[in-house]
Structure formats: C-alpha cells, structure tokens
Design a protein around this nucleic acid. Structure first.
Lengths: 211, 211
DNA sequence: ACGAATCTAACGAACGTTAGATAGATTCCC
DNA sequence: GGGAATCTATCTAACGTTCGTTAGATTCGT
C-alpha cells in the first residue's frame, strides 16, 4: 500500500517537481531547474529518476498516496456521509487556497492525451482511486443500520454511487480550475453545498448513529 | 463583436494550433509542426502570428467567439431555461465526443499560472463570457412573465444566478477532464441531469410560454 | 512596381540524456 | 584491524534535438 521509501534528496526532488507540475504541467518541469532548487546538478537528478517519465509517475503516485492518507477511511460506521464529503471538499480547498496551486491530477488530466503512457496511467489510477473512495463513502452510509455489506445485495446502488462519485470528483476538479483562472476561490468553496444537496437527495434518508 | 477577419491560411494555422493546444496545452504547439500541417515553413507562420503569445491569444479568442455563436441568445423569451442549459451541455459533449479532444480553456485554464499574460487574460475572458451567458440564461427565465429587466429590480437573484452559473461551468469543465482521463464519456453526459436538478431547484417554478 | 506571402539560412537558448571521473562512505575478507 | 573492493551520490562535459525568432532574398499576382 505504502509507496517506495525515497531518500531525503529524492523527496526534495519530488517536492520541487510536484510544485512545478501543478503550476505548469508535465513539460514545465526541467531537470536543470529541479537541480538548481535542490542544490545539485541536472545529471545527478537522473541518478534518482533516470527518465522524466519515471519522475512524472513517481510524483503522481506519491500524490495519490498522500491524498488518500489525508482522506482516511471511507467506511467508518460512526461517521455521517456528509462528513466524509465535506472532508473530500476540504482536501481540494486546501490544495488551491493554502498551497496556492491546483490539484496535480487536474493539471495532468487536462493534458493527458499528450502525456507519456506511464504518467497518464498513473493519472488514470488517481481518478479511479478517488472515485472508489467517494463511492464507498456514499454507499456505506446507506448500509449503516444493517450488516448487508458482505452479502453484496445492493448492486444497483453501487452503480448509482459510482455515477454520483464520478460527478463529485469531476465537479471538484472543474470548479478548482474555474476558481483558479477567475482568481475567485469561492467558486470552489461554493461547490460544497451544491454537492451536499445532490448527495442528500441521492441517499434515501437513512441517518447514521452519532459519532 | 466579431473577431478579426483572418486570411484562409491564417485560419488553417489557427485550426492546427487549436487542435494541438487542446491535446497538449500551450507548450505542445510548435511553429515547425504547425507549418508542416498547413504546408509552409515555420518562418512563414511568424508572418501571420509574429509571436507565439499572439497565436495563443488568437486561438482562444476565436474559440470564445465560435462557442458563443453556437450557444446563441441566452435571453430568448420563447425558450425554457432547461433548453438553454441543455444546449450548453451539448456544446461540451460535442467537443469531447465528436472532436475527441477536451475544451480548449479547460486545458489552458489548468496551466493558467504558467501562461503568457496575454493568453491567460484571454482564457480568463472566456470564462467570464461563459459565466455571463449562463447567468443570463438562468435569470431571464425567472423574469419571463414581466418586463422588469431594465428596472434592475433583482440584484440578489443576479448574484445567485452568477454563483450557480460559475458552478455549472466549473462542473462541465471538470467532468470533461474526468471523462477524458477515464475514457468514459458518460461522466460528461451524466452531468446534464445533475445540473438540471440543481437548476430546477434554484428557479422558483415559473414555467415560460411554450416555444 | 509594389505589396503580400513565402522561402532559405541561421542564431542562441533550452531541453533530456549519457559517458565517465571523483570523492566519500561502507562492506568484505584475509 | 587494515587494506581492497564495492556502493552511493555527486560532479564535469558534452551530445544531438528542438525550440522561438530574425534577417534578408524570392516569388507572384495586381
């Protein structure tokens, strides 16, 4: 589950690369610039990440791991569905507002037709994981009162949850881009109540136990 | 209102540049590649668009004009609000599904922190125009029965319409990116009913006359 | 003959990548 | 324990490619 253990210098490189990639996309990162940031030469960066596609993949995978770790469990039975979705929204808000840079996979996803295959695969995997987390977060709320989880008795709900999850993730990506280019963070923060309205109208009013 | 009248060759260049830009972003466009596509040399492309930033701005402005022309009037009193929003959704669907490439300003918006100023201004202008169209499309439905338009008597509704419009545009951008990287166009087409639900719950049930 | 559109040729800069040397630490074996 | 071998992380130097851009000549229709 946990990714590879990078050396300290490798992590510095990944930090610089992630920042640059979130500002300007994959092509905006250059080995020479990264090297200058972390205080070594360009050829030494190749020692840690032989090819640029390797570097791109590593950045995306570490980003995916970090974000999923922040989100935590999507199926804690003591938690409201709304609380989970709010946490998801807050992750996106933190990226844009505090880190002052959009979501990595928002940027890479937009140029995914032109990415090296191994990088666009990693981006695809990010979306799959995020959607899976969200769909689970939506579903386990419905099943909270019973224990029908292992019986697999709600296939149609799982499908509906996936559709809504894709919509939620997509909406957060897009409102982030729009907030960025308008320099208006409210576009992103306002997405939260809109999404919560969709969620509560999709879930058939089964409040869970209190946390 | 109508942009400049480009020569036939200039339009060919803009076509090639727009396609390339929608695939891979601003940096994916090179004068030599464009030249090869339209059958001239790179230096001749500079005759039509001296600097690359000029080319970028021209592509974005022509794209904005084309899209607004497709959308038509947002305040035709014989039209339902839902019809207008569906037309907006169909524009985005057409881009991804038939042209097989995402919205231009979706791609450029994601890398807007790294764009030449004149290009990111044009992208910003695109979003402003789209949001203005959508807000107007949402508002004039409410005011259809009376003629309070010029009296400016609904400032709070205008504001609420802008908020919803930003959310709609953002959602379309983001579900397009998500649909692209998942290679699942349904993510975009499914956004339509979700957005229509938000719209109809925001508009206080004032059906217009039949078209 | 003039202007529009294209060409050839080249400039300097930046890019990813590689080969090979080097310094310092660690490990291994006698 | 001490010298030898190996490994890690960096360096210098350079390669070939691509890029945006420019100067100046050329072609061609009006």
């Amino acid at each position: 589950m946990a990714g590879p253990n990078y050396s300290e210098k490798a992590n510095e490189i990944l930090n610089a690369a992630e920042l640059r990639m979130r500002q300007g996309g994959f092509d905006a990162v250059s080995y020479r610039d990264l090297a200058a940031v972390v205080g070594i030469k360009a050829s030494s960066v190749h020692y840690h990440f032989p090819q640029k596609a390797d570097l791109g993949r590593a950045v995306v995978e570490r980003y995916t791991t970090k974000l999923l770790a922040f989100l935590g469990a999507p199926d804690d039975p003591t938690e409201f569905v709304e609380t989970r979705i709010k946490r998801l929204c807050s992750a996106y808000q933190h990226a844009l507002i505090h880190e002052e840079v959009p979501c990595l996979c928002c940027v890479l996803g937009a140029e995914s037709l032109d990415l090296p295959a191994v990088v666009s695969q990693a981006v695809n995997h990010f979306f799959v994981q995020m959607i899976h987390w969200t769909a689970t977060a939506l579903l386990t709320g419905c099943e909270a009162q019973g224990d029908r989880d292992s019986s697999g008795s709600l296939p149609s709900d799982r499908q509906a949850a996936e559709v809504l999850a894709k919509h939620i993730i997509g909406t957060l990506q897009g409102t982030m881009i729009t907030a960025l280019t308008l320099q208006d963070p409210d576009v992103l923060t306002n997405a939260e109540p809109f999404l919560l309205r969709l969620v509560s109208s999709a879930i058939p009013t089964t409040p869970e136990r209190q946390p």
